[in-house]
């Protein structure tokens, strides 16, 4: 542990890695709450994969990979919506069709244009190679995401909880959906370096689900989820550095461990406490 702290103080690359992954943990945790409450975990997975061709095309055109990522992310969201609304194909199937197509296209483009080691880094992240520009991009995305959630909190809350009422009083629920998809794309881009495309969905879904098991209030859930995201980032980076493990995967497994603890021991929703309670009430009635 001391060794890790000393190294963080000593090495700038580790400081950047730590800062960036904490920021990613926080913003994934915040957006993840809305993703899971809207039942869009699969959509989160889809959008994160769909960023890949965007990154490749941006590289091809020599523009910032941000722009390409956002464009393909949104196109995927629109494509999924179009297929499920205009055919009998169900929503989860259309998600599966569209995002795998985008992902496959991305793999081909990247391997043609760059090398397979670049592909590997985009897919799985490489947090120790975070450049200052990556850190700044993550910070800006973080500010945009947290600012949006703060400013539009009531619209996000009502359209997630009761979309029919939201629509009835005139909120543009479709626009809110695509706005959220845009934020999701931004978050994915920010997460490329830390956990990589494949595992982003874990950072979106797992800390948020852990928080979901622990509270009955959305605002508290968002705070807890951000906290669990940050703890996973720090813990994961520490373990990955100390035992020389893949950083993205380690971060995800720390998040999973937190989830399992909550699943077993949550005061209200925990499986263990529930079992004990029901056993007690059974013996009382007997």
């Amino acid at each position: 542990m001391m060794n890790f702290i000393d190294s963080v103080i000593e090495y700038e690359f580790l400081q950047k890695a730590l800062l960036t992954s904490v920021m990613v943990g926080v913003i994934c945790g915040v957006i993840g709450c809305f993703i899971i409450l809207r039942g869009m975990a699969l959509m989160g997975d889809a959008i994160s994969h769909a960023v890949l061709p965007g990154v490749a095309i941006s590289y091809m055109l020599g523009i910032n990979f941000f722009i390409g990522a956002v464009v393909t992310g949104i196109l995927t969201a629109v494509g999924i919506g179009f297929i499920s609304q205009n055919s009998r194909v169900k929503n989860d199937s259309s998600i599966g069709i569209v995002f795998t197509a985008a992902f496959a296209l991305g793999i081909i483009l990247i391997t043609v244009l760059k090398s397979s080691s670049d592909l590997y880094h985009i897919l799985f992240g490489n947090v120790l190679a975070v450049r200052p520009s990556d850190m700044w991009i993550t910070l800006i995305i973080g500010i945009v995401v947290l600012g949006s959630v703060y400013l539009f909190y009531k619209e996000l809350l009502v359209s997630s909880f009761d979309p029919i009422m939201a629509q009835a009083y005139g909120l543009p629920t479709k626009m809110i959906h695509y706005f959220l998809m845009t934020l999701l794309t931004l978050v994915t881009v920010a997460s490329l370096q830390t956990v990589g495309i494949i595992l982003v969905v874990a950072m979106l879904v797992t800390p948020a689900s852990t928080a979901y098991l622990l509270t009955d209030r959305l605002s508290v859930m968002i705070g807890l989820s951000a906290l669990f995201g940050a703890i996973s980032a720090v813990g994961g980076l520490y373990l990955s550095f100390t035992y020389n493990l893949a950083s993205g995967a380690t971060i995800v497994l720390v998040a999973t461990t937190l989830f399992i603890v909550a699943l077993l021991f949550s005061p209200k929703q925990g499986i263990l406490l529930r079992a004990i309670r029901s056993k007690r009430s059974k013996t009382v009635t007997v």
């Binding site: 409450l37 909880f161 009761d162 029919i164 009422m165 009835a168 009955d216 959305l218 508290v220």
Partner: peptide, 17 residues
């Protein structure tokens, strides 16, 4: 206009008091 949806349209597990 106020609209009260059918009970089945609401997610009762939503973290809201």
């Amino acid at each position: 206009i106020a609209y009260v949806p059918q009970r089945s349209a609401i997610d009762w597990d939503f973290p809201i008091r």
